[in-house]
């Protein structure tokens, strides 16, 4: 691990300004992803700003009847929150499908959104990776690509986004509240937070340097059946090959998003009009133009079959 200096932030605006001011500075919250990457020297911050003391750990009801989730709410606490379990069950289910109990106790809401890909070539510093070292190439293309993206891929990167929680947040149409280095605030729809890789896979979100997520807000609940199905290589504590998050209403309409298929959680609203027509019709729209490798082509049929199981569960 490279040497770094450390300070505890006193306010979100101060923390944002400090990260923007000091070259090589980063926020640290749960640290479960960042420290893993620092040990491998994939992340080499020169200065860490610990934001754990910023009191961003509350879950509050909004005037609109939704929920405002502080950026530092731990994954365990969010999954176990009574209102989340009752009104946003999809979010609890997605959180509980991810990581281990130890990691969920530490990992935060904002950190979960900003976690980095688990592409094995991103992790292997002996391999080219445009995300880790821009311009060095992509070893996953033509390499071991079983876990990789099939939608929105580019010639520079086929990494997939690892978060389960973000899939649920996308279906729930969450908004991400931030503070910028100049102290101003903005709200970003979750669908606009993550980027596709394009020519710059190292830039994963639309946040500006130093911009700090302070909360994630959920609109008022929309009812329906909340289902999250994750398909992985072992029954627990593994990243998704693919996952399906859905809210299905009694009349068969609803919303659906996918994990494990793109550089960001994947939702195509036009596909949702097909929900009453079944999994095949929805998948055709969700994964139209899929660009697969010979190792991950199975994801297209796996999505269709998993979605069929989800719709079946929603009916019964």
């Amino acid at each position: 691990m490279k040497s770094f200096t450390y300070e505890r932030a006193n306010s979100p605006a101060e923390a944002a300004a400090a990260v923007a001011r000091v070259s090589g500075a980063k926020f640290i919250a749960g640290g479960t992803n960042l420290l893993d990457l620092m040990k491998l020297e994939i992340e080499t911050p020169t200065h860490l700003i610990d934001i754990n003391g910023l009191a961003l750990d509350k879950i509050e009801t909004t005037p609109e009847g939704g929920l405002r989730i502080g950026a530092l709410v731990r994954n365990t606490d969010l999954a176990a929150n009574q209102r989340v379990r009752r009104d946003y069950g999809l979010l609890s289910r997605a959180l509980l499908a991810g990581a281990s109990g130890q990691l969920r106790n530490k990992a935060t809401t904002a950190g979960n959104l900003l976690q980095r890909t688990r592409c094995p070539y991103f992790y292997d510093t002996n391999q080219p990776c445009n995300k880790r070292k821009p311009g060095s190439g992509c070893a996953a293309i033509g390499g071991f690509s079983r876990s990789h993206a099939v939608m929105g891929v580019s010639d520079a990167c086929i990494a997939s986004h690892p978060s389960d929680m973000a899939v649920a947040m996308l279906v729930l149409e969450a908004e991400v509240e931030t503070v910028k280095p100049d102290g101003s605030k903005r709200s970003i729809p979750i669908a606009e937070l993550h980027r596709l890789p394009g020519d710059t896979p190292q830039t994963e979100t639309t946040l500006m340097p130093g911009e700090l997520i302070v909360a994630v807000t959920l609109p008022k609940p929309i009812g329906g059946k909340h289902i999250y199905h994750k398909v992985r290589d072992r029954a627990s504590y593994a990243f998704a090959l693919i996952s399906v998050g859905a809210i299905v209403q009694q009349d068969g309409t609803g919303r659906v998003a996918l994990g494990g298929v793109a550089h960001k959680p994947w939702r195509i609203e036009a596909a949702e009009a097909e929900l009453p027509n079944g999994a095949k019709a929805v998948t055709a729209k969700l994964l139209a133009g899929a660009k697969t490798t010979h190792q991950n082509a199975f994801k297209v049929s796996l999505v269709e079959r998993t979605l069929a199981a989800v719709l079946d569960e929603a009916r019964n």
């Binding site: 490279k2 040497s3 770094f4 200096t5 450390y6 300070e7 001011r21 000091v22 070259s23 090589g24 500075a25 080499t44 020169t46 200065h47």
Partner: peptide, 20 residues
């Protein structure tokens, strides 16, 4: 890196007041 002096950018080294 044994000390802040070898931090990666001169700017960070200046900002890094308390040692590592």
């Amino acid at each position: 890196a044994p000390s802040v002096a070898s931090a990666q950018t001169p700017r960070a080294a200046t900002a890094a007041k308390p040692a590592a």
